[in-house]
Amino acid sequence: MIHFVLLISRQGKVRLTKWYSPYSQKERSKEDNELEILEIIQYFVETLHRYFGNVCELDLIFHFHKVYYILDEILIAGELQESSKKAIHRLIAAHDSIVETAKVESNTVSSIIAQVTD
């Protein structure tokens, strides 16, 4: 399993941290398959590419909360939960639209309130 995820820029700046609280060595019964884990990382990067469109550091900095959300769709408990990029994009799109709708709603509500209080 994966114990933690850290995104660190080439300059050494931390861009994302996520800990899947460590299980003790004892609980780890067999070695992990390193190549498999390596490809989970690659898969995560590819998912970010697809979402942000050629992801760059600035995307990660200003949308760190998005990255968290995407990561949560890929890993839970340090294990891969979904290996289809398509499926993940459907979920994130749905998530974005809920947030968007809520924002529109709240805007309308606040504008109504604003009008009333004026």
């Binding site: 941290t17 996520k18 800990w19 609280s21 909360h65 968290y68 959300y69 949560d72 998530h95 809920i98 947030v99 809520a102 924002k103």
Partner: peptide
């Protein structure tokens, strides 16, 4: 509401541990 709830979940699961 979802937007607040989602923030609560994500931030809590980063800031706190078991």
């Amino acid at each position: 509401k979802y937007p607040e709830k989602q923030v609560g979940y994500i931030v809590t699961s980063c800031l706190l541990n078991e």
